[in-house]
């Protein structure tokens, strides 16, 4: 099973997972980390310690935050860590319902597309 790892600000990862599990029930193979009190090196260490050499999907809250910088730098050493920024519930629903149906490389593209599709603007 492809693990999901959250590296976000504050308790965002926990809260997102709580909200996801309200819909999908408990999900296995989920690692939730925060950047609270961490240097970039601390964050990288925490991710590597938990994920090791396994392929995994790293969900970070936004492109520009320290979790993104840490994960991008890890991705260069571990090409099998996929990093997706701007984590939202649509992409998480996609990931957890489809992670056993598609090969890794296809899955991450689908997850990103579903995440984008979840953003709709109704105005005027």
């Amino acid at each position: 099973m492809i693990p999901a790892l959250f590296l976000t600000h504050g308790h965002l990862g926990e809260m997102l997972m709580e909200a996801v599990e309200k819909v999908l029930g408990p999900q296995p193979d989920v690692i939730v980390l925060s950047n609270d009190g961490c240097t970039i090196d601390n964050m990288k260490f925490n991710v590597e310690t938990r994920l090791g050499d396994r392929p995994g999907v790293l969900f970070v809250d936004f492109c520009g935050g320290s979790p993104y910088v840490a994960c991008k730098s890890l991705h260069e050493v571990h090409p099998n860590y996929a990093v997706i920024s701007g984590v939202n519930r649509p992409m998480l629903f996609s990931f957890f319902t489809k992670r056993n149906q598609f090969p890794f490389s296809e899955l991450i593209e689908i997850v990103k597309a579903d995440g984008l599709r979840g953003i709709q603007l109704l105005a005027e």
Partner: peptide
Amino acid sequence: DDRLLHGQVII
């Protein structure tokens, strides 16, 4: 800032 450019700085 030892996180260099990040959310607090940029945003």
